[in-house]
């Protein structure tokens, strides 16, 4: 019953009032230093940190806290966990690479994650795949095999990335969550377009494309592969005939603009949840909104510390949920 989420949705609505608004972002864009950004964040009820790295760490911790809150409040957190599938698979990728390169994986991890990140390196190293979530076991085994056999990091990444997208779609379909199905499909479409474009630029083989592209009801896998094999022009002209023509136009001019388009499309999807009084949608939408807010702040902080112009920063800012 959707009314199970009454308490969680109401709590999320209360938290939404503390999300950054356009005027906050404008003030931070106009700020002259990291310290000034930190001051603005403090005025928006955030913790006081003036060092760039500590600020980024504080933002990551904030997202972690938001996840814990949503996870505790959601009566069915299995549905919500789909939002973290990509983080989980990224962490698997990081673990495998660190294992091969004999480095510490922990600094490469993305949080929040539903995996036990402290134990993950040991789990992968000792091949205890049954400790991993069901949707990751086969991929972990396959990716480990490919990486140790071929040392081909690119192929391993392709296998893991595709598996993450497949797992998201499968779980969203299994749980019959309309919002999550749309989320998984949109994420897949964005990843597939980017992969197909890069592969066509690098003239990758058909078998690599088969491994790397996931496919979705929105963009057919076979058609994408067929057009990508013909070259970037054929791929882009085919995409222009789909509902993703805007994305096709952007990816050919700037990958940063394409990524911004993908993020903005996710926020547009999240905005649908504003009309929902009950259900998982407002919770998922809040997480997406928070993730995007933190991405915006990270872009701002990095750009400010590199002395990037105000115009470029504004151009890169993602759409806000509020």
């Amino acid at each position: 019953m959707t009314t199970e989420y009454a308490s969680a949705v109401a709590a999320v609505r209360a938290m939404e009032s503390s999300l950054l608004v356009q005027s906050d972002i404008e003030r931070m864009t106009a700020a002259g230093s990291i310290e000034e950004i930190s001051d603005i964040l403090v005025s928006c009820s955030r913790s006081a940190v003036s060092d760039k790295d500590k600020l980024i760490t504080a933002l990551e911790t904030e997202l972690d806290q938001v996840w814990s809150f949503l996870h505790d409040y959601a009566p069915n957190h299995k549905t919500l966990e789909i939002l973290l599938y990509r983080n989980n698979f990224h962490n698997l990728k990081a673990t495998l690479k660190a294992l091969i390169m004999n480095t510490d994986a922990k600094r490469l991890f993305i949080r929040p994650s539903t995996l036990d990140l402290d134990a993950l390196p040991e789990i992968v190293a000792s091949k205890q795949y049954d400790v991993l979530p069901v949707y990751m076991r086969e991929t972990a085994q396959e990716a480990y095999g490919i990486l140790t056999r071929t040392l081909d990091g690119q192929l391993t990444d392709a296998v893991i990335d595709r598996a993450a997208l497949e797992a998201m779609q499968n779980e969203a379909n299994r749980l019959k969550s309309g919002f999550m199905q749309k989320y998984a499909q949109l994420t897949t479409v964005c990843a597939d377009i980017q992969t197909a474009y890069r592969c066509s630029q690098m003239q990758k083989s058909e078998s690599f494309l088969e491994t790397a592209i996931c496919g979705s009801p929105e963009l057919d896998k076979n058609s994408l592969i067929r057009e990508a094999l013909k070259g970037t022009d054929a791929l882009l002209s085919w995409l222009e005939g789909t509902s993703y023509n805007e994305a096709a136009e952007l990816i050919s001019s700037s990958s940063a603009q394409f990524e911004k388009w993908c993020d903005d499309a996710l926020i547009a999807l999240a905005e649908e949840a504003k009309l929902k009084a009950f259900g998982i949608e407002p919770l998922a939408a809040y997480y997406i909104a928070k993730e995007m807010e933190i991405k915006n702040l990270r872009i701002l902080i990095v750009c400010k510390s590199c002395g990037t112009s105000r115009e470029t920063i504004i151009e890169r800012m993602r759409r806000l949920y509020v």
């Binding site: 009454a6 949705v9 109401a10 609505r13 209360a14 939404e16 009032s17 009084a277 009950f278």
Partner: peptide
């Protein structure tokens, strides 16, 4: 249900 949705308005 209507009042619970109203709680959402009050919250935000």
């Amino acid at each position: 249900r209507a009042a619970a949705a109203g709680v959402g308005i009050t919250a935000k």
